[in-house]
Computed example of a mutant assay.
Amino acid sequence: MSNQFPLSRTRTPVPDAERAAILAAPEFGRYFTDHMASAVWTPDREWHDRKIMPLQPFPLHPSAAVLHYAQEVFEGLKAYRHADGSVWLFRPELNARRFASSATRLALPELAGGDFLSSVEELVRADEQWVPGSAGEESLYIRPFMFASEAFLGLRPAKRVIYSVIASPVGPYFASGVRGVTLWVNSKYTRAAKGGTGTAKCGANYAASFAAQNEAQQHGCDQVLYLDRLGADGKGNLEESGTMNLCLVTSDRRLLTPPLGTILEGVTRATVLVLASEFGLTAEERPVSMDELRYGAAEGSITEVFATGTAAVITPIVGFRGNGYEFTIGNGAPGAWTLALRKHVLDIQYGLAEDTHGWLRRVI
Rank of each mutant, 00 (worst) to 15 (best):
Q4G: 12
L7S: 10
R11C: 15
V14C: 02
P15S: 04
D16S: 13
D16R: 13
R19Y: 07
A20G: 07
A21F: 07
F28W: 12
Y31S: 13
Y31P: 07
S38E: 13
S38I: 14
D44Y: 03
E46C: 13
L55M: 15
L55W: 12
Q56N: 14
Q56H: 14
L60Y: 08
H61V: 04
V66Q: 04
E72C: 10
V73D: 09
Y80R: 06
R81A: 07
R81Y: 02
D84F: 06
R91V: 11
A96V: 03
R97E: 14
R98Q: 04
R98E: 00
F99M: 00
A103K: 04
R105K: 08
R105V: 01
L108A: 11
A112C: 12
G113Y: 02
G114E: 10
S118D: 10
V120N: 06
R125N: 10
E128H: 10
E128K: 13
V131K: 08
G133M: 09
S134T: 06
S139N: 06
L140V: 09
Y141E: 04
S149K: 00
F152D: 14
L153T: 09
L155S: 10
P157K: 10
R160T: 15
R160W: 12
V161I: 07
S164I: 03
S168A: 04
S168Q: 03
S168F: 01
P172M: 00
F174D: 01
A175P: 00
S176Q: 14
T182R: 14
W184M: 06
V185S: 05
T190H: 15
T190V: 15
R191M: 06
A193L: 07
G196Q: 05
T197H: 09
K201C: 02
C202D: 03
A204D: 09
A204Y: 03
A204L: 09
N205F: 01
Y206M: 01
E215S: 09
A216E: 10
G220M: 12
Q223A: 04
L225V: 07
L227D: 08
A232S: 15
D233Q: 13
G234W: 08
N237I: 12
E239K: 00
E239N: 05
E240A: 01
L248K: 01
V249Q: 07
T250R: 15
S251A: 11
T257C: 02
P259L: 02
L264E: 07
E265V: 13
T271V: 05
T271R: 03
V272C: 00
S277W: 14
E284P: 06
R286I: 00
R286L: 09
P287A: 12
S289R: 05
M290K: 12
M290W: 13
M290N: 04
M290Q: 10
E292I: 07
L293P: 00
R294H: 02
G296Y: 10
A297H: 06
A297K: 11
E299V: 13
S301R: 10
I302E: 05
F306S: 09
F306M: 08
G309M: 01
G309A: 09
T315Q: 12
T315K: 05
T315D: 08
F320W: 10
G322W: 11
G324Q: 10
E326A: 07
E326Y: 15
E326F: 13
F327C: 06
F327Y: 13
T338P: 09
L339N: 04
A340Q: 12
R342K: 13
V345F: 11
Q349M: 02
